[in-house]
């Protein structure tokens, strides 16, 4: 077989009786293609990244789901797996990685720290990456087991299955100013959490905000 042979090959022509047809919905075939070759963009920072590596290695083998190609370039990735803690210093990097990804794109928040800040309710940590980027699936655990991550990816696949091309605009709409703005307003949070507040709106009502030891000099704010 050489190039010559290929040139002489008969091109498929409509109406040729040898060809077989398959009729289906465009939505189905597009979603089928999309969900079975998701390329993850591993945004791994801490412990969860090690579990993500374990899921890619031989025992758990992400390749079974068409995801063996970890795309280290956001431009070619479909699903952002944010695995690990995200401090405020890293927040713009995460946002930028997300912005660089092409539509359609999905996001998995892997682990307690990425989903809610985890045990790190401190001055340097983002309290959940959903204040930075929109998240489709949260995988709980500290860190989640590889099975948990795989289940999260399968949930993304389920989600893709039910998407429709006709609804593309609405599904992909993103408020550019929305990042960093709490979704719930203060009264809503207060009604749900009482005097404790939550970690993003603690300073309004919670006495937990006064965690400094009293009786010391003020250090200079620059």
């Amino acid at each position: 077989m050489g190039i010559k042979d290929r040139q002489n090959e008969q091109l498929p022509v409509a109406g040729n009786s040898d060809l077989t047809f398959l009729t289906t919905k465009v939505d189905f075939v597009v979603n089928w293609a999309r969900r079975n070759s998701l390329w993850p963009m591993p945004f791994g920072t801490a412990c969860c990244a090690i579990e993500m590596m374990a899921s890619a290695a031989s025992n758990f083998d992400l390749a079974r789901f068409g995801m063996e190609r970890m795309s280290f370039s956001p431009r070619q990735a479909d699903v952002l797996i944010c695995a690990g803690r995200v401090p405020y210093k890293l927040a713009p990097v995460l946002r930028r990685t997300w912005d660089q990804m092409m539509q359609p794109k999905w996001c998995i928040s892997m682990g307690a720290c990425a989903s809610s800040g985890g045990v790190f309710d401190t001055y340097s940590m983002v309290q959940g990456i959903d204040t930075i980027v929109p998240v489709d699936v949260y995988v709980p655990g500290c860190p989640p087991r590889p099975e948990g991550l795989i289940y999260g990816l399968m949930m993304i696949q389920e989600k893709i299955k039910s998407e429709s091309m006709a609804d593309h605009e609405r599904l992909r709409r993103e408020d550019p100013e929305g990042a960093g703005r709490p979704v719930a307003d203060s009264s809503e949070v207060k009604a749900l959490t009482g005097v404790f507040g939550n970690s993003t709106q603690q300073d309004k009502f919670s006495s937990l905000a006064q965690t400094a030891r009293p009786g010391r000099f003020k250090d200079v704010l620059k």
Binding site: S124, V126, R216
Partner: peptide
């Protein structure tokens, strides 16, 4: 420093 609150001086919204 001991007079620095655990969650920082600014609100979470401002920090983000």
């Amino acid at each position: 420093r001991k007079d620095f609150p655990l969650r920082g001086r600014f609100s979470r919204e401002k920090q983000t």
